[in-house]
Lab assay of single mutants.
Amino acid sequence: MEVRTIKVFTTVDNINLHTQVVDMSMTYGQQFGPTYLDGADVTKIKPHNSHEGKTFYVLPNDDTLRVEAFEYYHTTDPSFLGRYMSALNHTKKWKYPQVNGLTSIKWADNNCYLATALLTLQQIELKFNPPALQDAYYRARAGEAANFCALILAYCNKTVGELGDVRETMSYLFQHANLDSCKRVLNVVCKTCGQQQTTLKGVEAVMYMGTLSYEQFKKGVQIPCTCGKQATKYLVQQESPFVMMSAPPAQYELKHGTFTCASEYTGNYQCGHYKHITSKETLYCIDGALLTKSSEYKGPITDVFYKENSYTTTIK
């Protein structure tokens, strides 16, 4: 009895394709271990004539594949690729409408935090270190965002349907971005203890939790000093293409032309909904596939993004 075979390709990165001759009487799992086709788990399936010449994702289970996976995804987590594939199996079914010149995501599976993050990423200057993220990001900007969303979920250790947080998501993504040249110098002034300067680099240099107003941050924000008295913390120097200011959701007025974009969060910790506000020729609110415009805006804002380049204080 002759062994019926077909020729397929296996890959971990969709760049390096490895030619395989597979036995049609055995499952993919018996031949390769966990195997995925377009995100779908085909591990328990036997090869079919229609699979001839198709590319299958496999887990990096030998040295060659491990090197290829690390170079593309910059992670050695053995569960990463499987999590990416199972997320992709959902995100490829989502709709990605162009809204006001940006790629958004039609609401499904509690994905409003991903839509808000995706919209924000198209408006701030950011370059990702893992080629996987950078490639998928370019495709997302062009309207094909399924891979990018699935990668975000995998890097953030999230599953489809789980509630997510924009600030946490951005923080994970910033860790995989090139923020080497970003720098922030802060000064804390206390009447009792004097003053202390701190220099922050990388992710810490672009994120701040405690106030939404970048102007206020430049002037000074009140913080408790270690001595128990009130101290003032203010920005001395900022070198970065953008800054992200966050605070627990509270009524906040966004003035046209003073910011790049913002995240609105309605609801409580267990259950809520994100919308995205962007400042173009007027203010726009993007909620999944829905767009509304207004000249002014007041609502429960939790993150505001500002364009920056270089700032030095005039406070002496």
Rank of each mutant, 00 (worst) to 15 (best):
L119K: 02
G164I: 02
R83D: 03
Q197K: 09
Y96C: 07
D165P: 00
C193N: 08
Q237Y: 14
N187L: 11
E52M: 10
H90I: 12
K95Q: 12
K95I: 15
L153S: 10
R4H: 14
K219Y: 04
R4P: 13
G164D: 05
Y113E: 06
Q251W: 10
L88R: 03
G299N: 02
Y172V: 15
V160G: 03
G228L: 05
S79K: 14
T5F: 14
Y172M: 15
Q134D: 02
L102N: 09
Q31R: 13
A142T: 13
I277T: 01
G33D: 05
Q98N: 11
L212T: 03
A117F: 01
T64G: 12
K7W: 11
G299K: 03
Y84N: 01
A40N: 14
G29K: 08
F128N: 02
C190H: 00
T312M: 14
T302Y: 00
Y137K: 02
L283Y: 01
D13M: 00
K93V: 11
D135S: 11
T19F: 10
N89H: 11
G101Y: 07
T27C: 15
T159P: 05
L119W: 04
Q195N: 13
A136L: 04
K316G: 15
V22N: 06
E52P: 08
V99Q: 00
E239G: 04
C156K: 01
Y252H: 10
Y36I: 06
G228P: 02
H74E: 09
F32G: 08
E264N: 01
T313P: 10
D165N: 08
K158T: 08
S246V: 06
T282N: 05
A205L: 03
E68C: 05
K280P: 02
G228N: 04
F128M: 05
A40I: 12
P300H: 09
V22T: 12
S25W: 13
I15M: 14
Y96W: 04
S213F: 01
S86I: 12
V189K: 11
V243A: 01
L37V: 11
R167F: 08
I105W: 02
K95D: 15
A132L: 06
T192K: 10
C193W: 02
K183T: 09
P300A: 10
S86H: 09
T35G: 06
T64L: 12
L254D: 01
N89E: 14
S104Y: 00
M85C: 06
K127G: 03
L118V: 05
A154M: 07
A177C: 14
W107F: 10
G33S: 07
Q270V: 12
K275S: 10
L200G: 06
Y73M: 06
G272E: 06
G164E: 04
A146L: 02
C190E: 04
C193I: 05
Y306I: 02
S104M: 00
D303H: 00
G228M: 03
Y57I: 11
I315T: 15
N49M: 14
A40L: 13
Q123L: 05
Y311V: 03
H276D: 02
K229C: 12
D165M: 05
S294L: 15
K298T: 13
T192M: 09
V206W: 01
T11V: 04
G143V: 04
F242N: 03
A117C: 11
T226D: 12
D109K: 00
T258P: 00
V188H: 04
Y208T: 08
V21S: 13
L163G: 07
P130A: 10
F9Y: 13
Q270D: 15
C285V: 15
T192S: 15
A87S: 10
Q134M: 09
V58G: 06
G143T: 05
A132V: 06
S25K: 14
I286E: 04
L102H: 08
T199D: 01
C112V: 07
N110K: 04
P34Q: 07
A145P: 11
L118T: 08
C285F: 02
L283S: 03
Y36T: 03
T292Q: 08
R139K: 14
E162I: 05
F80R: 06
N157V: 01
T282L: 09
Q31K: 11
E144L: 08
D287G: 01
E239V: 13
M209H: 12
D63V: 07
P300K: 08
C149N: 08
F56S: 04
Q31P: 00
T313D: 13
L153Y: 12
T192A: 11
I223T: 13
F217R: 03
P224I: 12
A69Q: 12
K219E: 01
C227I: 02
F9T: 09
L126H: 06
A69H: 15
Q230V: 14
Y138P: 06
E264Q: 07
G288D: 00
L88G: 05
A132Y: 02
N16V: 08
C285L: 09
Q222W: 05
E144A: 10
E296S: 15
H273M: 02
S104K: 04
G39T: 12
K7M: 14
K7A: 15
M26Q: 15
K219F: 04
T76Q: 15
T75S: 13
E308N: 08
T232N: 02
I223N: 05
G53D: 13
P249M: 00
R167E: 03
C190T: 06
Y28V: 06
A142H: 15
C225H: 07
K93T: 13
G101Q: 07
R139N: 11
P131D: 04
W94N: 04
G257A: 03
F242R: 02
T266R: 02
P47T: 05
T313I: 13
T76H: 14
G202Y: 02
Y252D: 05
Y234T: 09
L37K: 12
A87C: 05
K275F: 08
V12L: 08
C271L: 13
L81F: 12
T43K: 09
I105C: 00
T116N: 09
N61A: 13
V42Y: 14
S240Q: 03
Y73F: 10
Y208A: 07
M245A: 00
L133G: 04
Q238W: 05
F305Q: 03
T43C: 07
Y138W: 14
K127D: 14
N61C: 15
Y73G: 06
A115N: 04
R139E: 13
Y84M: 04
D109F: 04
A132P: 04
P47F: 08
G194I: 00
W94H: 07
D13S: 09
P34Y: 08
T278A: 10
F217K: 01
R139F: 03
Q30S: 13
A142P: 04
P300W: 12
V206D: 00
T159Y: 10
G29Y: 09
E264F: 09
F148C: 04
K54Q: 14
G220M: 01
L114Y: 05
A136Q: 10
S25D: 15
E308S: 08
P130Y: 06
M209I: 12
T103M: 03
N14R: 09
F9S: 13
V8E: 08
R4D: 10
I105E: 06
A262P: 04
K316M: 15
T120M: 04
E239A: 06
A177R: 03
K54F: 13
E2W: 10
Q197H: 06
C225V: 01
V99S: 07
F242M: 02
G257E: 03
C190D: 05
H90W: 09
G272Q: 08
A136K: 03
Y306N: 00
Y57F: 15
K7P: 11
Q196Y: 12
K316Y: 15
T120K: 04
H51M: 07
L118I: 10
T27E: 12
T103Q: 08
H273R: 00
G220K: 00
T266E: 11
F259K: 02
E71G: 06
I45P: 06
R4I: 14
E281W: 07
Q30G: 12
F70S: 09
A115E: 10
E308R: 01
G101H: 00
A231R: 03
G161F: 04
L163E: 04
K255N: 06
D62F: 01
L17V: 10
P97G: 02
Q230S: 11
M26L: 14
S294G: 05
Q270E: 15
T116G: 08
Y96K: 07
M245R: 05
Y265D: 09
T55Q: 12
K183A: 05
M244G: 04
Y137A: 08
E162C: 04
C225M: 02
C190F: 07
Y306E: 00
I223D: 07
H74W: 00
N49Q: 15
S25M: 06
F70K: 15
C149E: 07
F174W: 07
V304R: 07
Q123N: 05
P34S: 10
C112M: 06
G53V: 08
A69L: 12
L151Y: 05
R66K: 15
G220T: 04
Y84P: 03
L102D: 01
L212F: 02
H90K: 15
Q251K: 07
N129A: 10
R141V: 12
C227M: 00
C193A: 00
T55C: 13
A150Q: 01
G39K: 06
N49E: 12
L81V: 14
